[in-house]
């Protein structure tokens, strides 16, 4: 870190007072302090301090009503190791993530590569982005209505196509997780596709032109050119979307908790890890245990991300 970057030194005329001007130019802490003060307060109070405090809380039996707690060492973690409901909620979350990310990624790649080959229309791109902009609560309610067991339009359409008459989505223990996963695939596929679309545009058009000359079909070009060359983008997008997918909560609460039902139902079939943490903190008033659960969730996410980056060799592109 030298004081001057190359573009600065060429642009500034050298004078005898050069060093004084350079100091003005680059500020130093006396200037930087005031620029950084608001953000440092925000970061300190709502990011750094809660991270440290969260670790501490996981070692206590904190109660929000009394707003105090005793230090109980690793008791919460001991409880967690034997907590079947924790494993169940992690397992459900994992199922959700696999279904959601699997379908969403395949569809997004498809959409992105189709757009890349067919159109630059910003109207089409905008329309695909619309579901992503909507509040999760709105999205959940839209689908809760359309997938209603007795009068939902999608339910009736599927029955018209020949699915069984007792088709159930949110009221079925086996279907509720795939249903919520599909809803969020609907919400995020356009956005994910746009992220990938951005990456696709780094592939030179000459590659496609050459392939077309040689008589390659669209499908062959997709398989032999598009897929291999978009791997770095895919890796980045997957890291972002998988971390997000593990944190599913709003949709679950809205689609399973309405009309007098128990959130996470039927019979806990959709109680994902975020909901389990939420219930421990808010409904059972056991903030210490909820904090311990979130510490473990963070560790799981870190491990998942680490292996993902290794597996996908994120930094490397075949376009060399």
């Amino acid at each position: 870190m030298t004081a001057v970057s190359p573009d600065t030194s060429t642009a500034t005329p050298r004078t005898s007072k050069g060093s004084k001007q350079l100091q003005n130019l680059t500020g130093g802490w006396p200037v930087a302090f005031w620029f950084l003060l608001p953000s440092m307060i925000g970061f300190g109070l709502f990011f750094l301090f809660p991270t440290i405090r969260g670790l501490y809380l996981s070692l206590t039996d904190w109660n929000l009503i009394a707003n105090r707690g005793e230090f109980i060492g690793l008791e919460n973690y001991r409880k967690l190791v034997d907590d079947q409901r924790f494993y169940d909620s992690m397992w459900r979350t994992l199922k959700y993530v696999v279904i959601n990310i699997g379908s969403q990624t395949v569809l997004a790649i498809l959409i992105a590569s189709m757009m890349d080959r067919l159109t630059r229309s910003s109207v089409i791109r905008g329309a695909l982005l619309l579901p992503w902009l909507m509040p999760n609560v709105v999205v959940g309610l839209l689908w809760l209505w359309m997938l209603d067991g007795s009068v939902g339009v999608v339910t009736e359409f599927l029955q018209w196509l020949g699915f069984s008459d007792d088709l159930a989505f949110f009221t079925s223990t086996t279907n509720v997780i795939p249903t919520i996963a599909a809803i969020n695939t609907w919400k995020f596929m356009g956005y994910t596709a746009l992220l990938m679309f951005a990456g696709l545009q780094t592939i030179p058009s000459t590659v496609y032109e050459a392939a077309a000359m040689d008589g390659a079909t669209e499908f062959q070009m997709f398989r032999k050119i598009t897929l291999p060359l978009m791997r770095p983008v895919l890796a980045l997008v997957l890291v972002i979307t998988i971390i997000g997918s593990f944190q599913v909560f709003d949709t679950v609460l809205v689609t399973t908790g309405g009309f007098g039902n128990q959130p996470g139902g039927p019979v806990n079939a959709s109680k994902v890890i975020y909901l389990y943490i939420y219930q421990n903190a808010i409904d059972f008033n056991d903030l210490g245990y909820a904090a311990a659960l979130s510490v473990v969730l963070v560790l799981v996410l870190m491990v998942v991300t680490f292996f993902q980056l290794r597996l996908l060799r994120a930094g490397e592109s075949d376009l060399a």
């Binding site: 970061f43 109070l45 709502f46 990011f47 750094l48 301090f49 809660p50 991270t51 405090r53 969260g54 809380l57 904190w62 929000l64 707003n67 971390i243 593990f246 944190q247 909560f249 975020y274 943490i277 939420y278 903190a281 903030l287 909820a290 904090a291 979130s294 510490v295 969730l297 963070v298 996410l301 870190m302």
Partner: peptide, 19 residues
């Protein structure tokens, strides 16, 4: 800070708001 899932800060932040 981008890496910290919101729920991790949520519980301590809730206590801070109560305080």
């Amino acid at each position: 800070g981008l890496m910290v899932p919101p729920i991790f800060a949520l519980i301590p932040n809730l206590i801070l708001m109560k305080n």
